[in-house]
């Protein structure tokens, strides 16, 4: 304990940032890549090592410090994985449709809650998230202003968040 610089609570940092790092890794290399968990573990080990060595000097926030380590590791991973570095722009990858759905009951419950929403909110979710239309396109389709679209999306989200937090 004494050896740690400035009494950094490593456990708390790992507990707080592990989900954030996992999210970022999954989004970049895809949940389909079975190595994603290894990459997260490596990053967390790396973070702890660097903190123990006192490499974090507080020039930036701890979040940014961990973000930088994460980004570097992801770039390495992608380089190693695909030696052909042709980064064509990804058209539209919503890559993780099933990632949260491990918990089927919860997913079904959320789905039921969406289904019970008023048609005007359901319709917005359908066009905006399911069909992935832009706010402007949705606005045109429904003959309302883009601002209205945002308001409805936000409101629908607010209703669902209540359900999801339970």
């Amino acid at each position: 304990m004494e050896k740690r610089k400035k009494d950094i609570d490593l456990d708390a940092i790992v507990a707080k940032y592990r989900p954030v790092v996992s999210f970022r890794v999954k989004k970049s290399i895809g949940v389909r890549t079975p190595d994603w968990e290894d990459v997260v573990n490596e990053i967390m080990i790396n973070v702890v090592e660097k903190l123990k060595k006192g490499e974090f000097r507080g020039d930036s926030s701890i979040g940014t410090f961990i973000y930088t380590i994460t980004s570097r590791r992801i770039i390495d991973f992608i380089r190693k994985k695909s030696k052909v570095l042709k980064h064509a722009p990804e058209p539209n990858p919503y890559l993780s449709p099933q990632e949260h759905v491990e918990n089927r009951e919860r997913a079904q419950w959320i789905a039921d809650s969406i289904e019970k929403l008023k048609p005007k909110y359901k319709e917005i979710l359908y066009l905006y998230y399911y069909q992935e239309l832009s706010r402007e396109e949705v606005a045109k389709k429904l003959n309302i202003s883009p601002r209205r679209v945002s308001e409805r999306v936000n409101y629908a989200q607010k209703l669902l968040r209540k359900v999801m937090r339970e």
């Binding site: 999210f23 993780s96 997913a107 959320i110 969406i114 669902l160």
Partner: peptide, 18 residues
């Protein structure tokens, strides 16, 4: 995270929800 979960559900269950 919540939005991501919501989109995941919408994508996976869309044909039944909508």
């Amino acid at each position: 995270n919540q939005t991501d979960e919501m989109i995941a559900v919408i994508k996976a269950h869309g044909s039944e929800i909508f």
